[in-house]
Design a binder for these strands. Structure first.
Length: 374
DNA sequence: TACACGTGGCC
DNA sequence: TGGCCAAGTGT
């Protein structure tokens, strides 16, 4: 357990100090007032001063999209969702597959399934709940997201702990316990710093600090408003925190993918099971994925199948997939097998195809897709 | 607690 | 180039 270096100091404003400077909400908010990132879903400090308040729908949508996903990847999806479904009522009324197709490419597809379910619950009850505890009852909203929405959209003074905050706080206090076990300690150390008047901006500020100054590699400590109170910096060990448990090795799995192409360019697709990996998304027919390369596997249609030169490699979080792609050319009259459908060229780009399946189709048909992703 | 769950960018 | 990383949640 890391010893608190600020033990015994007089309790004025909550915070810790090392070299005379102090870690306070005021210091961070003053930095944020000057350096807040302008983000599409954010009401910045200047707009807040003018009385503008965040829209809970936009805050919620952005927070779901941002789970384990970079700002750069989210921005175009956020804009396209907002244009198509400007409020929770319209999203609640959307067809499931339209939402899944709009989410395609962003990853972690259970988020999209939970997004639909949560939108319908909110539409049913009339509005978003305004407390972190109630928000956490909605599907797809856990400890981080409930706190973030409650703080940013409803000004509830709760500690908001994401990966950025874990990094910042683990450095400030030189937390020796590895993540994720240290999460409770970090939340407890953050809670007394949360200001009652600007809890949402405090959360946004801490995340901005982690994203732009207190970065994983080569943090810009010279620019940090909390530098004077940082135990890791004082010891010259800022890059040694946070301590993390080692990650397990990533196994390789193999599979076969059959890209059946009709003479008019339509591609044969089917729907994956609703839960699990890529749940509810579209795919080309293929074998199961296993540790050994598949030997014999029945094609979805009879005919001649030609192996595509380059197999497709795709890295998931917990395994690496190597797909052998086979292409078969079919007549315009070929019937789709049970539970499959032909997707015409002008529809293919609008299907709920995950990236790995777009790779497989592109390997067999290099011009199958235009630039139709957000 | 530990694992399943996507993707693309960076160095 | 391969490992790491990004505003986590559900089971």
């Amino acid at each position: 357990m890391a010893r608190r270096l600020d033990e015994g100091r007089p309790a004025e404003k909550p915070g810790r100090s090392v070299g005379g400077g102090v870690v306070t909400a005021d210091a961070l908010l003053a930095w944020y007032d000057r350096h807040a990132r302008p983000l599409p879903w954010r009401v910045g400090p200047a707009a807040r001063r003018r009385g503008e308040r965040p829209d809970p729908y936009r805050v919620w949508l952005s927070e779901i999209m941002l789970q384990q996903t970079t700002v750069a990847a989210v921005a175009p999806y956020f804009h396209s969702f907002l244009q198509r479904w400007p409020d929770v009522t319209s999203l609640a009324a959307a067809a499931d597959d339209a939402v899944m197709a709009a989410w395609a490419g962003l990853g972690y597809y259970s988020r999209a399934r939970n997004l639909i379910a949560a939108a319908r619950k909110v539409a049913e009850r009339g509005a978003f709940p305004s407390s972190a505890a109630e928000l956490a009852e909605l599907p797809g909203i856990g400890g981080y997201t409930s706190a973030a929405i409650a703080a940013i959209a409803f000004a509830e003074p709760v500690p908001v702990v994401d990966g950025n905050v874990e990094r910042v706080m683990s450095r400030i206090h030189a937390v020796a316990r590895p993540l994720p076990a240290a999460k409770a300690e970090i939340r407890d150390r953050l809670a007394p710093l949360v200001p009652a008047d600007r809890p949402g901006e405090f959360a946004e500020a801490l995340m901005d600090l982690g994203a732009t100054i207190c970065t994983p590699k080569r943090p810009a400590c010279a620019l940090c408003p909390w530098q004077d109170g940082c135990a890791a910096f004082a010891a010259g060990l800022q890059e040694s925190f946070p301590v993390k448990a080692p990650k397990p090795a990533r196994p390789v799995r193999h599979g076969l993918a059959y890209v059946a192409v009709r003479s008019d360019g339509a591609v044969l697709l089917r729907r994956r099971p609703p839960k699990g990996l890529l749940g509810g998304m579209a795919e080309v027919p293929g074998s199961a994925w296993g540790a050994e390369p598949a030997s014999a596997f029945e094609p979805p249609l009879p005919g001649s199948w030609e192996r595509v030169d380059r197999s497709v490699t795709h890295v998931f979080t917990h395994f690496e997939l190597r797909l052998t792609v086979l292409r078969g050319d079919c007549s315009a009259r070929a019937a789709a097998p049970p539970a499959c459908w032909w997707s015409p060229p002008d529809a293919l780009g609008h299907e709920a195809l995950p990236s790995v399946m777009r790779k497989a189709i592109s390997a067999a048909c290099p011009n199958a897709f235009g630039k139709d992703r957000p």
